Amino acid sequence: MPDLTLNMTLRAYDHLTPLFLGDVPTPGIKLNLDHRAPLTSAFPEGLAAAEVSFNRYVLAAAKGDDSLIGLPAFILRGFRHRNYIVRRDSPLETLADLRGRTIGTNSWSDTGTMWARAAMRDAGVQVSDVDWVIGDLDEATPLKPPTALDVDPPRGSRVLRSGETLMGKLRDGSIDAVTTAFMPEPVFQPDGEFRRLVRNYREVEQEFHRRTGVYPGFHIVAVRRDFAEAHPAAVITLYNALRASWDLWWSKAKKFAEGSPWAMEEVETMIRDFPGDTPPFGTEAVAHQRMLAMICHEQFAQGLIARAARPEDLFGAFERLGTRIAA
């Protein structure tokens, strides 16, 4: 009997290299990976699995949309205290300094910007304490197109006109800070005109992690429910392959750590300080349970949803697939 074809879109992250190279077995399925397709919450016909926005997936779950089954595979993670930009001559130095200020963003519904607002709220600044401006980041990074799972920014938010950009408004002083997923190149220039708001972001993020136990997740993998219900074993095989890919990469990282001069120290930091998040799979670890609870709480607290999703429901359908296969 020929293998079942499983079409999937997935970014080519380092820890997924073994999967892309074919070094991970996927018994019973022929895995077709597309790493060039843009991230989407809409699954076109023929697409069985995809990397998706975790924030949008949880929003859908909170609204009762069960068309996708999420896998507890947290394939993209990070802290967002570092993702606020100010002018180099700005007097602002901390997230607490943002109260009463004007902040720009080029996406309201992205998981990263949700976590950035969570970091701000953790510093004592509520979403309503800020004037929000929505628009293109710069000439090369337009405002992200809306999806069916997007939510509206707060009432009173201003949308930039065509030809205006957030970085331009930051440059001329019309706004005080910008938060976005990826830092524009001037932020990386030692004497560039822009800098990160939180200069000592590693220390601040470490303190947040020590206090909350949360290492934020941005993207997960999800499968179409109709595909999962027709082929539950294929879904479990996919999940196991993602885990196996991470394991192979992690073994290599511990041997070589060649990505940067102190990459080995980063490996040891993960082992020492993030044991519950290593590997980034499953819901059994207390660290992951805290992260799930926080994203559900933050969506409600930030006004993204009228009724918060329940953390235990987010991956319940996937767990039931595993039980079904085991039986």
Score class of each variant (00 low, 15 high):
218 F>V: 03
201 Y>A: 14
213 G>T: 03
227 F>K: 11
210 R>V: 02
210 R>E: 06
200 N>H: 10
198 V>Q: 03
189 Q>V: 11
188 F>E: 08
204 V>Y: 03
216 P>K: 07
191 D>Y: 09
191 D>T: 13
202 R>I: 08
214 V>Q: 02
212 T>A: 07
223 V>S: 13
222 A>H: 05
229 E>V: 10
227 F>N: 12
194 F>I: 15
197 L>T: 10
227 F>R: 11
197 L>A: 12
211 R>P: 00
218 F>M: 15
216 P>Y: 06
212 T>G: 04
186 P>L: 08
184 P>A: 12
195 R>W: 06
215 Y>D: 10
221 V>W: 03
223 V>R: 12
226 D>N: 13
183 M>I: 05
204 V>I: 01
218 F>C: 08
222 A>I: 01
186 P>W: 10
228 A>M: 03
208 F>S: 00
225 R>Q: 08
226 D>R: 07
194 F>N: 14
212 T>W: 00
229 E>T: 13
198 V>I: 08
204 V>A: 09
197 L>M: 04
229 E>S: 12
197 L>S: 04
184 P>Y: 11
220 I>L: 11
228 A>C: 11
185 E>F: 07
220 I>M: 06
220 I>Q: 08
190 P>Q: 06
227 F>P: 01
209 H>S: 09
186 P>A: 07
192 G>M: 06
187 V>S: 05
210 R>L: 03
190 P>F: 05
185 E>A: 15
217 G>K: 08
209 H>I: 04
189 Q>M: 08
221 V>M: 12
220 I>Y: 05
218 F>T: 10
211 R>I: 00
197 L>N: 14
184 P>F: 04
193 E>G: 12
206 Q>V: 01
229 E>Q: 15
228 A>P: 02
226 D>V: 09
225 R>T: 15
219 H>A: 07
188 F>D: 14
205 E>A: 05
212 T>E: 00
215 Y>K: 05
200 N>D: 13
190 P>S: 13
204 V>Q: 01
198 V>K: 02
183 M>E: 07
197 L>D: 12
201 Y>Q: 07
206 Q>A: 14
224 R>E: 10
209 H>R: 04
204 V>E: 04
200 N>C: 11
227 F>C: 05
186 P>M: 05
199 R>C: 01
225 R>A: 06
200 N>E: 02
219 H>G: 13
192 G>T: 07
206 Q>C: 09
223 V>Q: 15
212 T>D: 09
205 E>D: 11
185 E>L: 13
220 I>T: 12
187 V>E: 07
194 F>H: 15
225 R>I: 04
206 Q>N: 15
202 R>V: 09
215 Y>F: 10
227 F>S: 04
225 R>V: 00
200 N>W: 02
188 F>L: 13
205 E>V: 01
224 R>P: 03
209 H>Q: 05
217 G>Y: 02
183 M>Q: 13
220 I>N: 06
224 R>T: 12
220 I>D: 06
200 N>A: 11
202 R>M: 14
220 I>E: 03
220 I>W: 01
210 R>I: 02
224 R>S: 13
